[in-house]
Design a protein around this nucleic acid. Sequence first.
DNA 1: ATAAACCTGTGTGTTAGACACAGGTCAAGG
DNA 2: CCTTGACCTGTGTCTAACACACAGGTTTAT
Lengths: 153, 153
Amino acid sequence: MRVNQLAKNLNITGDTVRFYTRIGLLSPAKSSVNGYKDYSDKDQSRMQFILSARNLGFSVDEIKVIFSRTDQGESACGLVRQMIQQKLEETEKQFEEMVKLRRKLSNAVEDWSHKPDKAPTGNMICHLIEGTYAESSQLEANREASMTPSLED
Amino acid sequence: MRVNQLAKNLNITGDTVRFYTRIGLLSPAKSSVNGYKDYSDKDQSRMQFILSARNLGFSVDEIKVIFSRTDQGESACGLVRQMIQQKLEETEKQFEEMVKLRRKLSNAVEDWSHKPDKAPTGNMICHLIEGTYAESSQLEANREASMTPSLED
DNA sequence: ATAAACCTGTGTGTTAGACACAGGTCAAGG
DNA sequence: CCTTGACCTGTGTCTAACACACAGGTTTAT
Ligand SMILES: [Zn+2]
Ligand SMILES: [Zn+2]
Ligand SMILES: [Zn+2]
Ligand SMILES: [Zn+2]
């Protein structure tokens, strides 16, 4: 099976398959007749695994680590359980960053609606942006925390 | 003023200042004596503007567009208002992606807690990952939506 | 045979800096 | 004057996960 066939089977682009081949996660045989890469069914299920892992937010490097176990017949389950736990924590942090940014932006939109347009001066490029402070107030941070959806039932 | 002095003033690294110099957002004079770059106060306020804009999530390219106006004395306010509106929408999308990912991960952790470890086989690399489906159910999506903190008061 | 259509591998571009590094500069000491 | 060491500078390279461009090979139809 050639690159575009595999790609079509999994509904991805040939470039994606080539990428994972280039970095060594897929190792197709080389057709002796035309030099084209020849992907096996195992390559396809490997690619499918990569997609599932990426879907869960695993990085390519993390997937490499997983393969380094499973390619030797060892179970990666323990490792994977540990990895996803850490990933959940990272996601939580990023989530909170997003919440902050979202509030920062909507606050800016609100503030700016009270301000007029201005031409730039020697020490002011755009007063809208320059007048927007980075840190959100503690009060807002608390309010946001109370609005953050939890994972508990 | 030299690169590290400017960096210290704004509490950033010299590399950051060099980066923005390299891509042309800062244009310091060159000291004729030693070739070192010589930053003016205007360069510093430019750098400060860049930091404020980056803090609001503006990309370097967007900042370039802003400068292309203000460097000719034209106000960028209209443009900036339009940009931030769009950025707010993008952020909203990314936020929802984060929410989905977070739930996907915590669902996986829950599901996996009921499953045993397994060794890889010919067509299964890690059943935990492979058995985790991409799409969250509509029910969960709705529940998530109701838990999503809104920006309204 | 030939032309069009399709396919392949590889090189490069993308973000916003971080890091490495060879070499320049400067004050203190001999 | 010279040297040692500390500090500083500009530039080249690296990052993640592909997407895109492109020259050239292959296949199919005529
Ligand atoms: Zn497993
Ligand atoms: Zn208001
Ligand atoms: Zn403005
Ligand atoms: Zn349960």
